[in-house]
């Protein structure tokens, strides 16, 4: 069986090619830089959906892959969806795992905002967008044959400019201790309080989506949840976080959870081992003193 893979970053690409190799697929991959695959279509960088959809159509017609694979980034999802609609092939995005079952695939993905995990089956050929972070890069024997390939410009939209986001290497995913805060922290200056606590505990700092995406107080890499990092520390201290399911799904694998909230009945309670009802502004300074 054959997969046609695209990812805009070599890291995601390699994670997904490892995942696909494990499933026993021959991997043809379009990439902008050196990557691991059986057949590497080293292409000029184009990040606009019309061109990538067209390139997939062109290569798809030539190769007849069983599986069309994207990383489940925003670009990956928009291309996967449009390509699926154009070709009439079924499409699943935000896949967390994929297995082949005869002439079908079975994928898992979150449903109901993360309350449940759905196992869903569809026939091949199919289009999938897979959360690349869920897979490790492994050493397989790829054929590593290079094929010249050009992604041609296609009509649609006109990209005027692009500004790279400031990215930080954040060790949230492998951290033993995480201190996560939400909108209970009212001002940017108050993050200092969280930082002091994190320092005492040698912890990584995480946050909810409003903190990183609305207020931009922290880089997006620190956001935990459905659309962010999934963490699995020994200890999570969650401060001023309401615990909406889209956030809570990211903390499910924590061993012990302490939550601090001044609302005696926030949804966060259900996801906590210890639910501390207190004002964070009075509690955290005292906590820091005692540690």
């Amino acid at each position: 069986m054959k997969a046609l893979l695209f990812s805009e970053t070599p890291e995601n690409f390699n994670r997904l090619s490892s995942m696909l190799k494990k499933l026993g697929l021959d991997i043809h991959g379009i990439s902008f830089s050196e990557v691991k695959a059986d057949y590497i279509y080293l292409a000029n960088e184009r990040l606009d959906y019309p061109s990538i959809v067209k390139a997939f159509e062109e290569l798809g017609n030539k190769l007849n892959p069983d599986l069309y694979v994207f990383s489940s980034t925003k670009l990956g999802k928009e291309v996967a969806s449009r390509f699926s609609q154009r070709t009439g092939l079924p499409c699943l995005t935000e896949c967390l795992s994929v297995e082949i079952d005869g002439s079908s695939i079975i994928a898992t993905r979150y449903s109901l905002g993360g309350k449940t995990l759905m196992k869903i089956k569809t026939d091949l050929p199919a289009v999938i967008a897979v959360v690349a972070d869920a897979f490790e890069i492994e050493d397989f024997d790829f054929k590593m044959e290079k094929v010249d390939f050009e992604i041609k410009e296609a009509d649609g939209i006109n990209v005027i400019s692009r500004e790279e986001k400031r990215r930080e290497k954040v060790g949230l995913r492998n951290a033993d201790v995480v201190v996560c805060f939400g909108r209970g922290v009212r001002r940017k200056e108050d993050i200092e309080l969280i930082e002091k606590l994190a320092e005492k505990l040698n912890a990584e700092i995480g946050c909810t989506r409003p903190i990183s995406h609305d207020y931009r107080w922290l880089p997006e890499e620190r956001m935990i949840g459905l659309s962010g990092e999934k963490i699995s520390p020994k200890l999570l201290i969650s401060i001023g976080v309401s615990g909406q399911i889209q956030h809570a799904v990211g903390i499910m694998n924590s061993k012990t959870v302490i939550a601090i909230n001044n609302d005696e009945n926030a949804p966060m309670k259900e996801y906590s081992d210890y639910y501390v009802i207190a004002d964070l502004y009075s509690l955290i300074p005292e906590l820091i003193k005692l540690l």
């Binding site: 925003k74 928009e78 291309v79 969806s81 449009r82 699926s84 699943l92 935000e94 905002g113």
Partner: peptide
Amino acid sequence: YSAQMAPR
């Protein structure tokens, strides 16, 4: 959270 509708 599948983000397919607008492109489709």
